[in-house]
Simulated scan of single mutants.
Amino acid sequence: MFLAEFFGLFSLSAFSMWAFLMAFFFNIFVYSLDVKRDTTLLLSSFIMMISYTATDYIFTWLSYYDTTYFDWAIYDISTILCLAIAFSFIKKTTPSFLYLLIGLSVNSIFFLLMYLDVYINKNLESWWFWSVYQFSVNIIDFLMVVALIVDRDFLGLHGIKRKLTRLFKTSKTQPTT
């Protein structure tokens, strides 16, 4: 786990928490200046800031069992549910919303796979997946923060979503022979 050894486990966690806090403050600032009055973006950044603050390494001592990866998966799934509930009330989204849902989903899958590897399979020897996990989770966190700040489809996820939606709609309407 190169990143954890180089930067330290706690500093990466603190950086993610700080980055989501700054994204929330940025969105409050933009909202208060009346530059962008998008409550969905403000609410999404608030939910992400609360989620990452509550699930920081500092607060993992609240876990009853020593299953940190499983706890993080549950936290991410809970955050997805909170975002979905917020969406159900507001009924509109921003470009960053899809990035948050995909990022949290991929992170929770990585957490569950690490939980299976470390706690179920009892693997304590570092292998390539651990490095992929460490790199991916941190990059995804960074991309979610960027999505909350720029609020643009900078990776083209919405274009891919539209193409897949059209593909599935046309495959359902065409009769199979």
Rank of each mutant, 00 (worst) to 15 (best):
Met17His: 03
Ser11Ala: 13
Val137Ser: 02
Thr165His: 09
Phe7Ala: 13
Leu41Thr: 02
Phe89Lys: 11
Ala4Asp: 14
Leu98Asp: 02
Leu42Phe: 00
Leu62Trp: 09
Ser11Phe: 13
Ala14Arg: 15
Phe2Ser: 11
Tyr99Gln: 02
Asn138Asp: 14
Ile120Gly: 11
Ile90Ala: 08
Phe142His: 04
Lys92Trp: 09
Ser44His: 11
Ser171Cys: 09
Ser105Lys: 00
Leu98Tyr: 13
Leu101Glu: 04
Phe15Cys: 08
Lys169Ser: 05
Lys172Asp: 15
Pro95Tyr: 01
Asn27Met: 09
Ser136Lys: 00
Tyr75Asp: 02
Pro175Glu: 14
Phe111Met: 09
Tyr52Trp: 06
Phe135His: 10
Ser63Met: 03
Arg152Asp: 07
Thr93Ile: 14
Trp72Leu: 03
Ser88Arg: 05
Leu100Tyr: 06
Tyr133Pro: 00
Val150Thr: 08
Met114Cys: 01
Tyr119Ala: 05
Ser63Glu: 11
Ala147Gln: 00
Leu101Phe: 11
Phe10Asn: 14
Ser32Leu: 11
Leu157Ser: 03
Leu41Cys: 01
Phe168Met: 08
Ala84Asp: 15
Tyr31Cys: 01
Leu116Cys: 14
Phe26Thr: 14
Glu5Leu: 14
Lys161Phe: 14
Asp141Gly: 10
Lys36Pro: 04
Asp153Val: 09
Ala73Pro: 12
Leu167Gln: 03
Leu143Met: 12
Ser16Gly: 12
Met1Pro: 12
Ala19Met: 12
Thr173Cys: 11
Gln134Asn: 07
Ile109Ala: 11
Tyr99Lys: 15
Leu21Lys: 13
Tyr57Phe: 07
Phe87Thr: 12
Gln174Arg: 08
Val137Ile: 15
Phe142Asp: 02
Phe142Leu: 14
Leu42Ile: 04
Ile58Val: 15
Arg166Thr: 11
Gly159Trp: 06
Ile139Gln: 00
Phe7Asn: 06
Lys169Tyr: 09
Ile77Thr: 07
Ile47Ser: 06
Asp66Gln: 15
Gln174Lys: 13
Met144His: 02
Phe20Thr: 00
Val132Lys: 11
Ala86Thr: 15
Phe129Gln: 06
Thr177Asn: 08
Thr170Ser: 12
Trp130Pro: 04
Thr39Leu: 10
Ala54Gln: 04
Phe129Cys: 01
Phe7Thr: 13
Ser11Arg: 15
Met1Thr: 10
Phe7Trp: 06
Val106Met: 05
Leu3Ser: 12
Asp34Ala: 13
Tyr133Cys: 03
Ile58Leu: 07
Ser32Glu: 04
Phe110Gly: 01
Leu167Tyr: 07
Ile47His: 04
Ile85Leu: 04
Asp38Pro: 01
Leu101Gln: 03
Gln134Ala: 15
Ser45Cys: 03
Ile149Asn: 00
Trp18Leu: 10
Val106Asp: 11
Leu43Arg: 12
Val137Gln: 02
Leu116Pro: 00
Glu125Asn: 12
Thr60Pro: 00
Ser78Pro: 02
Leu101Tyr: 01
Thr93Gly: 03
Asp34Phe: 05
Phe129Pro: 01
Met17Leu: 06
Val146Asn: 02
Thr55Asp: 02
Phe46Val: 01
Ala73Met: 14
Val137Lys: 03
Thr177Gly: 14
Phe25Thr: 08
Leu83Trp: 15
Val137Tyr: 10
Leu100Thr: 05
Glu5Cys: 07
